[in-house]
Design a protein around this nucleic acid. Sequence first.
DNA 1: TGTCGCTACTAGAGCGCTCTAGTCAGATGC
DNA 2: GCATCTGACTAGAGCGCTCTAGTAGCGACA
Lengths: 326, 326
Amino acid sequence: MGRPTMEDVAALAGVSRALVSIVYRDAPGASDATRARVLAAGAELGYRPDHRARLLGRTRTRLLGVTFDVQASFHGDLVEALYTAAESAGYDLALSAVAPSRSESRAVQSLLDYRCEALILLGPTLKPSALAALAESQPTVVVARKVRAPGVDVVRTDDTTGSRLAVEHLLALGHTKIAHIDGGKTPGSPERRTGYRNTMRAARLTPLIVPGGPTEDEGARAAKTFLDDAPRATAVTVFNDRSAVGFLDIIRQSRRVPDELSVIGYDNTTVAALSHIDLTTIAQDTPRLAAHATTTALARLAGTPTTPDQTIPPTLIPRTTTGPPR
Amino acid sequence: MGRPTMEDVAALAGVSRALVSIVYRDAPGASDATRARVLAAGAELGYRPDHRARLLGRTRTRLLGVTFDVQASFHGDLVEALYTAAESAGYDLALSAVAPSRSESRAVQSLLDYRCEALILLGPTLKPSALAALAESQPTVVVARKVRAPGVDVVRTDDTTGSRLAVEHLLALGHTKIAHIDGGKTPGSPERRTGYRNTMRAARLTPLIVPGGPTEDEGARAAKTFLDDAPRATAVTVFNDRSAVGFLDIIRQSRRVPDELSVIGYDNTTVAALSHIDLTTIAQDTPRLAAHATTTALARLAGTPTTPDQTIPPTLIPRTTTGPPR
DNA sequence: TGTCGCTACTAGAGCGCTCTAGTCAGATGC
DNA sequence: GCATCTGACTAGAGCGCTCTAGTAGCGACA
């Protein structure tokens, strides 16, 4: 027999199936008394509308497909924020995980099979051409990656501003000898480098960039280069938290942090927040990223023009790895 | 007009809708020639079966509902493994995230609305009574948490064995003075403590347990207690990786690791694998956990008797925080 | 030649909803 | 008193599939 259907509720309440539908959709056309009676009958039977049938019945699925990397904790934050954003727009989320053994195109296909109205891809690695192809059949929003693909909307953090915030924080503390450990050719690295350089120049200071990369190891390696290249620097902005953690691990052997050296990371990962690391960092504004992604997808759906590349300003999270110079 | 339907494919291939269904379900009853012709027509139209309609049409949804914590990277591993396990059983996964702003019961309800055949809950925090209630309407498997609730199957790592492995690794390296930093009243803590104690006793050694907890801070605090209580210990097994990382951070100020002190964590988190931490640890066998969870759910579905509490042995991941005593 | 058995296919009734196009009282207007 | 309107409710046709029951065609066998 399985779970109760709308028919069962209708029979118990002594009304038609259609009326039950009206009540459960919260649509106009039922008196308050009947409404209450139907809901009571539904509750008694433990009725819950079948989502599949509901989706099939109406033209619009009110479903937003989201792909995310199962390992990226930043994606976790975004998914949470997307739930909130989608819900307030009356949409539901269909999640599809990307993992080493589950490719992104696989994940996307399964979302399409559910007839999601739009796609929100978190940090996708698909080629621009593949993204453009997806965008042809439904609105496609890329979050947290800078890509140019026709028809694809991008919502990302303004990394140039992020870097500027980091440098300005250090300037405000009184630092003048500020170096930057860069992220090599990682996405986002050019923007963060530019933000650093521009802010330094605006303050009439000399930028000093140490080559680095996105991992702890590269941060650790950069620490050695840093000691040689910029021994007199009193502060450093690092490409990201992971790199900063590796950097700190080495640098602490010869410098007290923050007394002798202030360090800022980027991303506000959970590792940065660990009490024994307690890294000052730049946080991406996940609720706004999520809200903009949702709004953009819905705007496309509605045929409203969208801004294809939106940047959201990040914020500084001051912790204990930064302080005034000695 | 939207996406092509089965009807469109049928028309193009010059066959009935039912035949197209047969072909796409890979069911017997179509000649090879027709099969090819139908698939060609489908490909030409870019047809993909509508998942919702497919689910509605058949009695069984072949859908496994999974709740997971969006922040727990361990859950990420499990989700990946579950995709693999479910797929080989011909099932698909419906994911529902649990987050601070999205309660577990919320997540479960949305899975039920999709008429999942069974529920797989990763580290759920629901009360046993709530779990039992869920188990009444469909198979419910709890992964990575020890709970006793009628009708609920549990699949978890054998933590006693995990602790034993840790101690045996240290014994094999030649250690005899081995302490344990425990996890307080965290789930799993009693089992891990027991495993440590039993293995020590079996080796005719005196167990020494230092109170601790699951976080970095508690690990760091335990490090101070440890230096007072067990100054002569040459090795220590810590409740989990997070605690071990905090412990290491403090202990390294007075002891060289592993020369003067060997340290083992538990969980094999990504943090443990970071090259500058490189923590020897105990890894949970996620593929097997996932496989057992899936198998158990399907067995319940089939009416086969299940083992309500299954434990999977973990494995030791040797890294550089352990070595022979000086 | 009749009928049995097969394979290859089709017709059509669901699945559990949504939603358009009604019906049918009873209130309102003139 | 009659047409008109409105609010409350129902009938029934989909949505895009699955799946059971059934048919058509054909070779085999007695």
